[in-house]
């Protein structure tokens, strides 16, 4: 569970990564997840190289199996990461979806 203060502090970093396009360098499908992610598994985690050259590791959402290939074009979006903490602060973060 992340501290609400930390979530607030990270907002600007998240904003700077939204809406960027890139391609999948490699991927896995996590079937045995960490505790906070049990309700989401199985899910793909992809390593993406953005057009700026920066790389990010994030989940792939709104995908078909055919999208899990080397070089698949994706775009970064904002999505909920895990459950809200007891204070009700929702942790948002970066995920990627296929660019079609």
């Amino acid at each position: 569970m992340q501290s609400p203060v930390k979530i607030w502090r990270n907002q600007k970093n998240i904003a700077s990564l939204v809406g960027k396009t890139g391609k999948i360098l490699s991927w896995t499908i996590v079937r045995v997840p960490p505790g906070d992610f049990t309700d989401q598994a199985p899910y793909p985690v992809v390593l993406v190289e953005l057009e700026s050259g920066k790389r990010v590791t994030c989940q792939l959402v709104d995908y078909d199996d055919a999208h899990l290939t080397f070089g698949q074009r994706v775009v970064t979006i904002i999505r909920r990461v895990t459950h809200p903490d007891p204070d009700g602060v929702i942790p948002y973060g970066i995920k990627a979806k296929p660019l079609v």
Partner: peptide, 11 residues
């Protein structure tokens, strides 16, 4: 970043 992606060490 990897924790927020729900990554694991096997992953």
């Amino acid at each position: 970043e990897e924790r927020n992606a729900g990554a694991t060490f096997p992953g």
